[in-house]
């Protein structure tokens, strides 16, 4: 069980301090609004921390182990996609991401039919969007530094 208010208050205080340090050298015009905002942010954070100590609100973060594992796997897949996209290029990375998620969310993952469907749908959807964004809307998508 987590003390939600205490976590929110402390994280907000850390953010306020992190923003306070590099904004000390600003001019009056550039810094006046930042200063007011940081004062309000820090004050409210202290109130929340006090509330978290005096009247804690305990919360369960994940409802089950399965939910936690699913979220962590999903986030890891997204993270891998974002790390590799600028390196291998938008198109190959997106084919892999789409097919991987499609396969992961299917019910009978080990069936050959489902794997083939995941790959084929990935090829069609990603290629379709790629062509629209690149050729119609003129958005230059990452090519991939490994192949430059």
């Amino acid at each position: 069980m987590l003390n939600a208010d205490l976590i929110i208050g402390i994280v907000s205080l850390v953010i306020a301090v992190t923003a306070w340090v590099p904004t000390r050298g600003l001019t009056l015009l550039g810094g006046v609004f930042v200063d007011y905002t940081l004062i309000v942010l820090a004050s409210l954070s202290v109130v929340i921390v006090i509330k978290g100590i005096a009247k804690p609100e305990k919360l369960r973060f994940f409802e089950s182990v399965v939910e936690r594992n699913n979220i962590l796997i999903g986030l890891a897949m997204l993270l891998v996609y974002l790390v590799f996209m600028p390196k291998v290029g938008f198109l190959p990375a997106s084919y892999l991401m789409y097919a991987a998620f499609n396969w992961y969310l299917s019910e009978d993952r080990m069936k050959t039919k489902n794997i083939i469907i995941s790959v084929l749908v990935s090829l069609v959807v990603v290629t379709g969007f790629y062509l629209v964004f690149r050729n119609v809307l003129g958005v230059p998508l990452p090519k991939g530094s490994w192949f430059d």
């Binding site: 923003a19 600003l26 015009l29 550039g30 609004f33 930042v34 942010l41």
Partner: peptide
């Protein structure tokens, strides 16, 4: 509000956060 201050200040031109 703090997030909105990231970047070049609209008046003054300071680079922030």
């Amino acid at each position: 509000l703090l997030l909105s201050t990231i970047g070049i200040a609209p008046i003054g031109g300071d680079i922030r956060l």
